[in-house]
Amino acid sequence: MNLKALLVVGAAAAALVLPAVPAAAEPGDTVTTTLTQAIADLPVAAESRDGYERDKFRHWVDADRDGCNTRAEVLLEEATLSPTVGPRCSISGGVWHSYYDDTDQTAARALDIDHMVPLAESWDSGASAWSPAERQAYANDLEDSRALVAVTARENRSKADQDPAEWLPSDGGAVCRYVTEWTAVKTRWELTADPAEVDALERLADGCPDAEITVVLAR
């Protein structure tokens, strides 16, 4: 192969490499990378739950003061059949798909709103050093649809505060989406990952498409 051909091949290969999170990235910057690269870029650190209390993450709030709190906003956004909204944002009717267990639900009360990266896990991974305002923003993050997800109560309570090394959705077909969304949220909020978590993410990602991930950095 001549030099010109080698340069063309090299340029094509380089074009396939998406940038990782730049060192000088700022909140509000958009970062595009791949699943495997995003996992590799997660800062690795031991976790500590010292001082954690759930009420240090204020939720659910009505940030836009439209009468619907964060829980209701997620339900309205994720409904596959729109519900009726009554006084004080009461929700009736509607259909939702819980992707963790591939189950449809017709009652809002049967659903929990899961923090993709649980509040306790975020505390372990860096949120312990955040301000109360930052923790509130994290707990009510409606800017990224991956951060909060409506799922059946049994799946959410089975998951509790566990990371992907300890818990995965019961529907095997949901695992790649789950791993991708977990990694996206950790990237968005600059959260660390412990060694067992990274090992699990890498192992699971090996069986998934190396999907492109785009996030707007929150911090």
Rank of each mutant, 00 (worst) to 15 (best):
H59T: 09
L3H: 12
R49T: 08
K4H: 11
T80Y: 05
A12F: 14
L142F: 03
R65S: 13
D66F: 06
R71F: 03
S98V: 06
E202K: 13
T70L: 07
L42N: 05
A137N: 11
V44C: 08
S98G: 15
L142C: 09
A174W: 01
V9Q: 08
V9A: 15
R58H: 07
E134S: 12
H115P: 04
P118S: 09
A14R: 12
S125T: 02
A79S: 08
S158T: 10
C208I: 01
W182N: 00
V215D: 01
S128T: 01
G173R: 06
L6E: 13
V21Y: 01
S128K: 09
T183S: 08
K56P: 01
V61T: 14
G86R: 03
A120S: 14
P164F: 02
W182C: 03
E143K: 15
D171S: 15
H115R: 13
P209S: 06
T152D: 06
R154Q: 15
D66W: 01
P164A: 05
P83M: 02
R154H: 13
E166G: 07
T106G: 15
N69Q: 08
G10F: 01
V216D: 01
S131M: 08
D29P: 02
K4N: 10
W60Y: 12
A79D: 03
Q37G: 11
S82V: 07
A11T: 15
D112V: 13
G173D: 03
S92L: 13
R146N: 07
N156K: 10
L111G: 04
A139E: 06
P118G: 12
S82A: 15
A127E: 02
G207Y: 05
E181V: 01
R188G: 04
A108F: 11
G86M: 05
L168M: 06
L75Y: 02
H59P: 02
E202T: 13
R146M: 08
A184M: 03
L6V: 10
V8W: 02
W96M: 05
R65H: 13
G172S: 13
T192H: 03
P27Q: 08
K56G: 11
H97V: 13
V17N: 10
L75W: 02
V17P: 07
T214M: 08
E143Q: 14
V175L: 05
E78I: 09
Q162K: 14
T187S: 05
A133I: 09
V95M: 12
A174T: 07
E78W: 02
V179E: 02
S128E: 08
S90Q: 12
A218Y: 00
I39R: 06
D104T: 12
L168I: 05
E181N: 10
Q105W: 12
S122P: 03
T30N: 11
V215C: 10
D206N: 12
A196N: 10
A14D: 05
D102V: 08
V198E: 00
E155P: 02
L75S: 10
I113K: 05
V117R: 11
T30H: 11
G28L: 11
A5P: 01
T103A: 14
D112G: 12
E166I: 07
G51V: 12
T30K: 15
D114F: 04
P118C: 06
A107E: 14
A72M: 09
R154V: 14
W167H: 00
G172W: 00
E78H: 06
A63E: 09
R49W: 04
D104E: 15
D102K: 13
D62E: 05
D163Y: 00
E26G: 14
P169S: 03
D50L: 14
D64Y: 04
